[in-house]
Design a protein around this nucleic acid. Structure first.
Lengths: 124, 124
DNA sequence: CCGTATCCCTAACGATACTG
DNA sequence: CAGTATCGTTAGGGATACGG
């Protein structure tokens, strides 16, 4: 106990589960797209490489349940649905951008690390 | 195209996969622990709530392969192994802290959102 | 257009036992 | 101590078909 002024972020199981639900494979991309502007379901589907209907629906429901996005039903015919980032979701925007930017910037080094790792495994 | 000075972070599949591998259930916690100081295998195991040997091993291998951590074998008897954050991993430290901090700060609002969502589903 | 329902398959995980 | 190996279960994901 020397100089830990701020409380150590000992994650509770609840928090771990929550982060797990908003940092998964598709969520980051959905949040990223919705940070730009609201989108319709099929619009999102097209914007995200190869997500299936099922996975996208599941991701949207999960994000909505966790308060990260809002689902707005527009009562036209046929029905239209718009998804948009929530106030809570917006507070994560900078972090997401930073994360995606970090991944882009360091992908090269990651590739090299993978090469080294796989080589060592191969010769052993 | 108004003021987007930085390139839009259109994630490649490769980058998405990479982020997926270092933001998963256990990785965040492992990285967090190793940012504090190097740790031994069983030390990590105890430090992280309920991870199993198998999952911890898999997580460590994945992080090592992606260049985020380093595995140092100390040739004592019985063998000791120390894991520590890599230079690349360190560049993510602030982001991880921010992420964990954000989760802590907003957990309350998340709980409320869940309550609302589950209520609506229940009465429907 | 926006989903839900179904089938199927595989990747992940926990539990347990065993090795250098 | 630090793993690997195996087994059985289960959650996630893709493909497809159908409904409001």
């Amino acid at each position: 106990m020397t100089d830990t002024a701020i409380a150590p972020p000992q994650l509770t199981g609840e928090q771990r589960e929550f982060l797990d639900q908003i940092l998964d494979k598709w969520s980051l991309q959905v949040l990223d797209k919705l940070c730009e502007r609201p989108r319709r379901f099929n619009e999102l589907r097209r914007a995200i490489p190869v997500v299936t209907q099922k996975s996208l629906t599941a991701t949207l429901r999960r994000l909505e349940r966790n308060g990260m996005i809002e689902r707005v039903v527009i009562g036209t015919r046929p029905v239209a649905v718009e998804y948009r980032i929530s106030a809570l979701g917006e507070t994560l925007q900078d972090l997401i951008d930073a994360l995606l930017g970090w991944a882009s910037s360091n992908m090269d080094e990651v590739r090299q690390a993978r090469g080294r790792f796989d080589d060592e495994a191969g010769e052993a």
